[in-house]
């Protein structure tokens, strides 16, 4: 995990609760991050454009515009990582939020270390690959953080890039959802495997011709996912 950079990473905190927002900035500034706070859903886009954050911490319950819509608005213009804050881990809101484009979510209340670990996982540039990787007709370039398929560039979010890089880096291994949560999402504790499913579905819709008949990543039932070696 190479995290040493001259530029301070920027976190946009979107939360209507003033105390929590302030507490978040205290903790994150303590971790050497630059923060900005937005307290209402309908002002997020303005703050986003002005602040240019490297990651967004987004509360799902917001006055003005709800978290889900904010998430979609941001995704429409940017691939910036989004982590949702939610008080209700068991509601359909979480899945809806993930499908709206969020990369991860954290359930309140959380430990500072957990929050920071997840943020770091999203801020970190993938270190799965040192050099460009060719895998069948897919080419991953870690330096430019770009992926192309048959020469055409693919629009992957950083998280999807990390997920793909992780799987393609070792085609001999079947990655369980728990392993992926650890490696890609930075989880220290067992987490929600729905998270993996949602993102895998979206990744497949971008890299496979037919998502029902995958040629790049296959599902190993009851275990996890594995890259399919391209025909030589």
């Amino acid at each position: 995990m190479s995290y040493r950079r001259t530029k301070r990473d920027r976190v946009l905190v979107v939360d209507d609760d003033a105390s929590l927002a302030e507490m978040l900035t205290i903790v994150l500034e303590g971790e050497g991050l630059t923060t900005a706070v937005c307290r209402s859903g309908d002002r997020v886009m303005a703050a986003f454009t002005q602040f240019k954050p490297d990651v967004v911490l987004l509360d799902l319950m917001l006055p003005g515009l709800d978290g889900m819509s904010v998430c979609r608005q941001i995704r429409a213009t940017s691939e910036v990582p989004i982590i949702m804050l939610t008080a209700k881990a068991d509601t359909p809101d979480v899945v809806a939020g993930l499908e709206a484009g969020a990369d991860d979510y954290i359930t309140k209340p959380f430990k500072n270390t957990e929050l920071v670990a997840r943020l770091r996982a999203r801020l970190r540039r993938s270190d799965q690959l040192a050099e460009p990787l060719e895998f069948g007709d897919i080419v991953l370039d870690p330096a430019g953080h770009t992926v192309s398929r048959k020469g055409e560039p693919l629009e992957l979010t950083p998280l999807e890039f990390d997920l793909l890089a992780c799987l393609l880096s070792d085609p001999s291994q079947v990655f369980t959802r728990e392993t992926l949560l650890q490696k890609v999402w930075g989880y220290h504790h067992p987490g929600d495997t729905k998270l993996v499913n949602v993102h895998m579905t979206r990744l497949r819709s971008k890299i496979e011709d037919d998502a029902d008949d995958p040629r790049v990543i296959r599902t190993v039932r009851g275990v996890g996912y594995q890259a399919i070696l391209p025909d030589a």
Partner: peptide
């Protein structure tokens, strides 16, 4: 119960973060 939980969780998060600091 769900609403109460949400209302309780947000301040609890703040307090817990503060206590950790």
């Amino acid at each position: 119960v769900s609403d109460v939980s949400h209302e309780l969780r947000t301040p609890l998060t703040t307090v817990q973060m503060a206590s950790e600091v």
